[in-house]
C-alpha cells in the first residue's frame, strides 16, 4: 500500500486524466476585469469619509485627530473605559501614551510576551495598523512591532487602533497588493468589533474578541 500522499496525488492525476497541464502553466486565463484601484488616492478626503461611514456602520467608534492631539485622545478614551491598565506592543511610539494618568502601561513583544491570563487581566490595548480599506471598513494588523502579537489585540476587551490617514486605501485589491510584499506575516483583518448573527440572524456586537473598537484616524 502506498502512503497517503502518493495515493492522493495519483488519484488527482488520474481524475484529471490527460487534462493535467504542465507544471507552471496557468491553464485557464483568469480574467481580472474587476477594480484593482479605487477612484481616489490613499488618504483622500472621500476615502477617509467612506472608511468612517463603514466603521461606524459596524459600531466601531471613530475619532479624527491630529498627531499632536492623539495623546490626549488616548488618555480620554482609556479614562472612559475606565482602564486601570493598558498593554502596548513594544514598537508603539512612546509619545502616544504621554498624556496617560493613573494607568498602568504594560509592554508586550515576541521576545517578552505576556501570558494569555495576564492579558485577560488588562483592560485595554493600543496598537498601530498596517493598512485600512475604506470600502469594507477593514483595518489590517500584520504583527510588526508597532502592531504586536495577535493575542495582544485580541484578549483585552477594548482595542484602540491608531490608523494614519495615508494608510487608508479605497479597495481590497489595493490593500492586498501592499500586504503581498510580506504574505508570511501573521495578519488579522478587523472590521468592527467582534459580532455574531447566530441567533435568528440578529447581529449582536461583542462576543469573544474586544467588545469595543476605537479607531483613531490620525492626520
Amino acid at each position: 500500500m502506498s502512503d497517503a500522499r502518493t495515493e492522493i496525488l495519483s488519484r488527482i492525476r488520474t481524475a484529471l486524466g490527460s487534462s493535467t497541464p504542465e507544471p507552471g502553466t496557468v491553464s485557464t486565463a483568469v480574467p481580472r476585469e474587476y477594480r484593482s484601484l479605487g477612484d481616489h488616492a490613499p488618504g483622500a478626503a472621500e476615502v477617509l469619509d467612506l472608511l468612517v461611514d463603514r466603521l461606524e456602520d459596524y459600531k466601531a467608534r471613530v475619532h479624527r485627530v491630529t498627531a499632536a492631539d492623539l495623546p490626549a485622545l488616548l488618555a480620554r478614551l482609556l479614562a472612559e473605559v475606565p482602564a486601570s491598565s493598558v498593554v502596548v506592543p513594544a514598537g508603539v511610539e512612546g509619545a502616544w501614551l504621554g498624556a496617560l494618568a493613573d494607568v498602568e502601561v504594560r509592554t508586550d513583544s515576541r521576545e517578552a510576551p505576556l501570558s494569555a491570563t495576564e492579558l485577560d487581566g488588562i483592560d485595554a490595548v493600543v496598537t498601530a495598523a498596517r493598512v485600512a480599506v475604506a470600502e469594507t471598513g477593514t483595518i489590517v494588523l500584520d504583527g510588526e512591532p508597532d502592531q504586536g502579537r495577535r493575542a495582544v489585540s485580541l484578549v483585552p476587551d477594548v482595542h484602540v487602533c491608531v490608523v494614519r490617514t495615508d494608510q487608508v486605501v479605497q479597495t481590497v485589491p489595493e490593500a492586498v497588493r501592499l500586504l503581498d510584499a510580506d504574505p508570511g506575516r501573521p495578519q488579522t483583518w478587523i472590521s468592527g468589533p467582534s459580532a455574531t448573527s447566530d441567533i435568528e440572524l440578529d447581529r449582536v456586537e461583542g462576543v469573544h474578541g474586544p467588545r469595543t473598537l476605537h479607531v483613531a484616524l490620525v492626520s
Binding site: 469594507t136 502579537r149 493575542a151 481590497v172 506575516r185 501573521p186 495578519q187 488579522t188 483583518w189 472590521s191
Partner: peptide
C-alpha cells in the same frame, strides 16, 4: 475571494475577523 465570500455569506461588506497565518511565527501564536 475576500470580496466575494463575506458579502455572499453573512451579507456583510467584510466579516469582523479574518486571520491569516503562514506556518509558525516564532513568538506569536
Amino acid at each position: 475571494f475576500l470580496q466575494l465570500l463575506p458579502r455572499s455569506s453573512t451579507g456583510e461588506r467584510m466579516n469582523p475577523y479574518t486571520s491569516l497565518w503562514t506556518g509558525v511565527t516564532p513568538g506569536d501564536g
